[in-house]
Design a binder for these strands. Structure first.
Lengths: 210, 210, 210, 210
DNA sequence: TATGAATGAGTATTCATTCAT
DNA sequence: TATGAATGAATACTCATTCAT
């Protein structure tokens, strides 16, 4: 939650500051990212920074919120279709949406992934607060429904299923980010193939065969 | 690769220094771990430290090597049985071995997991160098054999399979470390159940059904 | 000496600003009191503050003037009775008036006492200017008269006597402020006893015995 | 309690650092004294300073200890004579000793007085710890004895007497420091006169007349 | 080889004040 | 007159590393 002073800034200045900050967090990770470096690159006075944000935590939190907003933009339309589709068809659409997000905001994706992976639970809670377990909780809800519809195995606890599928989603992220330097170069066909392979394993592993 | 001066130290002094360093990396993570803090706790002179190791990177790298050695101790006997077993039976034994490692060296495990998760690819490469992809490469060999024996699906590239199974192994690590504060308290029966569930998904997802 | 812009402000706004400032100086002392904190709490713009006052010094000086005004309110009626009373009887009334001031404005009293005690002579002079030695000068006049009336020892220089009695007044302040958290709880009887003791020492020490 | 690193420094370097620090605290008071300024003037690296002392508090505390040591040097021989003398004769010797201390270390005296006067009780306790109430407690002991010997009034509580006499001692300090720029210029005769006057008031005010 | 003092750039954050609107 | 964004020097303190002994 940046201060009003930041929100009142001309859009371009906000953008510049955020871009610089995002690059900093991306390059160095949360702990090593430096406010001094950010203000220098953004050409603003140190004092100004502290009139925009409460401090490092506040800035980072704001960026996390932005990331979540972007993600939501891609995921939201797909989420709405859940009731009309089989779980795995729906999940496939989620993967395409995820890909689109990664392609559009690879840097944001990396920040998110890095922070998520590293950082003590303590740090995460301090900075993210309730923002924390969103993805996981949201997935749990849908998985629960899918189990009830007999689309997912019911011999495994929902909690475990949710963790597994979350981890798979993270794997999907990682795989794409590490395999391709520039996701815009991934052809439609190639993407289709990757997703099919991914889903094939997931489906065999988790669908209800009874 | 510590310098000779370190290797020539009496075993107990080496041990002390490494124990202190391991605790530091465990508690604070790579970035925040402090050499000053380590030398103070280990009761050695700052200058001495730099006569033992090139610096922070070097020390950490050495610890990673130690971790890998410990892991290997547990994994080695199992690896030897590969030819006598079905891939999934063999993998099950690997999971038990992994569990034993985690139970015996939870602190080392956490360091490894944390560093692996966090840290830019760039940092990882700088510090780990060739130590980096060991697990992955080693798994690849066995997966390849299993595919040849028609125990694993052959409609998916070996490389992809290896990545998937690596990620699953990491998930297994995580799951155990995050779910249980003290792995010595996990009953034989409970462990069996966790591993069975885990394997069930993996097997359904990846075995050759033809 | 605040600027006209401040004096033209509606009374309530002036009050609010001064109350906040007084609290700040009371809580943190002169050096650590922060303008930023004051303007924030008083809900005025930073720029406005500098249109009301020259700066921190100016604001503090103004508060000192206010404090002196309050003190005078209590002391003035007593001062007028000087000619009708013996010096020590008169001084006793001054002590009661002092007590009433402390009881009514403990916060103002603390600011005054703290600043007076701390702060280099240099700082005091810079900030208080001529406001500085008022109490002392005013006491000197009355002491001089008392010496002429043979009520105070004449074997000690008037200047020294004035300093001594000033210091005793400060001691009286201190004693009350440090001994009691809330002066409104001091009973009439108790107060009488304190003042009597205090005066007894003073009188024995300074009255003309000849 | 400076660290060993400081104590191991050559005497002249220790002296230089302390002199600079003492001057800084003298000129600006505790709150405004700046470590940056000290290290710059003493020509040492910032990092070095923190290898000598824990921080600002630690440095200041050390200086307070030094001050107390110096004071004790002057007071100690006099204290020993207490049993052989009348209270007021003994106190007179204490005043002479006090004067010698002020003359020899006027800067140290000012630091002590300033800190003592200013600073919240909270700050004092944090920094001084048990060093705090020494003077006061020590005086109380002697006053108690003097009351038992019927040399001081017994119609006033010992606690109050101790506070009063403490404050008188502080007044004596102040008077000398503010009246004379250079105490080495005060003649023997003049000093005798000042002390006599001071004692005359004190004695009349507090001695047992019965 | 062992030591530990020296280094100075680095950190996040706060400050009183100015000035364009 | 009122505003509040901009400023940059200031603060205490930590860091990994070097180097003379």
């Amino acid at each position: 939650m940046p201060k009003d002073t930041f929100m009142n800034l001309p859009f371009e200045k906000q953008s510049l500051i955020l871009d610089v900050a995002i690059k900093e967090f991306h390059d160095k990770g949360y702990d090593l990212a430096s406010i001094s470096s950010i203000v220098e690159k953004a050409q603003i006075a140190k004092g100004s920074f502290y009139q925009y944000f409460e401090g490092k935590d506040d800035l980072f939190k704001h960026i996390v919120v932005i990331i979540n907003d972007k993600k939501t933009q891609f995921a939201h339309p797909v989420i709405l279709t859940f009731d009309q589709l089989n779980f795995f068809d729906w999940f496939k659409k989620m993967l395409f949406a995820t890909f689109e997000f990664l392609k559009s905001y690879p840097v944001l994706a990396k920040i998110s992934v890095d922070f998520w992976k590293h950082s003590s639970t303590h740090t995460k809670e301090r900075i993210l607060g309730e923002e924390m377990n969103r993805t996981h909780e949201f997935l749990t809800v849908f998985i629960e429904k899918a189990v009830q519809k007999n689309e997912l195995r019911n011999d495994i606890s929902i909690e475990y299923l949710a963790r597994y599928i979350s981890s798979q989603l993270a794997f999907f992220n990682d795989y794409l980010l590490e395999t391709y330097d520039d996701l815009t170069l991934v052809s439609e066909k190639n993407l289709e193939k990757i997703i099919t392979t991914f889903l094939s394993i997931l489906e065999h592993g988790t669908k209800n065969h009874s």
